[in-house]
């Protein structure tokens, strides 16, 4: 076993175990912490694959941004300290069975792929990535991705406005607590 394989095994096991932890734990904050480790493991896999920009983007967007918001949301909406929501047996059987079937199908499909040999040439870095998003193809004749980039930008703007609108301070006329009106 080479060093690379050992590294892959460690990272993959960590991600897989954490993903399982997200499913199994009944407390929402614990799920979030497992998800955090899963995201870190996947980010490690990106670095392992040589996609450094994506690894760092995964860290800054998910770990630094999204997960903080998710934990924040989880804390704001639990009904007591260390709230647990257990899952019934029927849920486990149905959900687990469905997922297991799908997993088996996907494994079968992915094992039928012809494995390309791992090439050690570096992946295109931040420069080519940025240029192709701005509509300059890496080599003439290749596709560039200006339109998706613009659509995503507009989408982000829409989301920004929508989130601000949804989260704005609202006046509740039926409120019985006048001092709780800041929500």
């Amino acid at each position: 076993m080479t060093f690379h394989d050992a590294l892959f095994l460690i990272l993959a096991t960590a991600s897989a175990v954490s993903a399982l932890g997200v499913v199994v734990s009944s407390s929402i904050i614990r799920s979030a912490i497992w998800l955090l480790f899963m995201l870190m493991g996947v980010s490690g896999l990106y670095f392992f694959l040589g996609a450094e920009f994506l690894g760092a983007a995964q860290l800054i967007v998910y770990v630094g941004g999204t997960m903080v918001l998710v934990v924040f949301g989880g804390m704001l909406t639990t009904r007591g300290p260390f709230d647990h929501v257990p899952v019934g047996l029927v849920g486990w059987v149905l959900g687990g069975g469905l997922s297991l079937a799908l997993f088996a199908l996907l494994v079968q499909a992915s094992l039928s792929f012809v494995s390309h040999p791992r090439t050690d040439t570096a992946l295109p870095g931040t420069g080519p990535l940025g240029l192709t998003l701005l509509g300059v193809p890496e080599t003439p004749g290749q596709t560039a991705y200006l339109l998706p980039f613009e659509i995503v930008s507009i989408h982000l703007l829409v989301v920004l406005i929508a989130a601000a609108y949804l989260a704005r301070a609202k006046r509740r006329p039926t409120s019985t607590h006048p001092e709780a009106d800041h929500g």
């Binding site: 394989d5 149905l94 499909a109």
Partner: peptide, 23 residues
């Protein structure tokens, strides 16, 4: 460990996500 290994790992993550959605 080549491409299929990554595909299997990703399939596992996908299945976990689906179970989360369902349960």
């Amino acid at each position: 460990f080549g491409f299929p290994a990554f595909l299997v790992l990703s399939a596992f993550l996908f299945a976990c996500g689906l179970t989360c959605l369902a349960t």
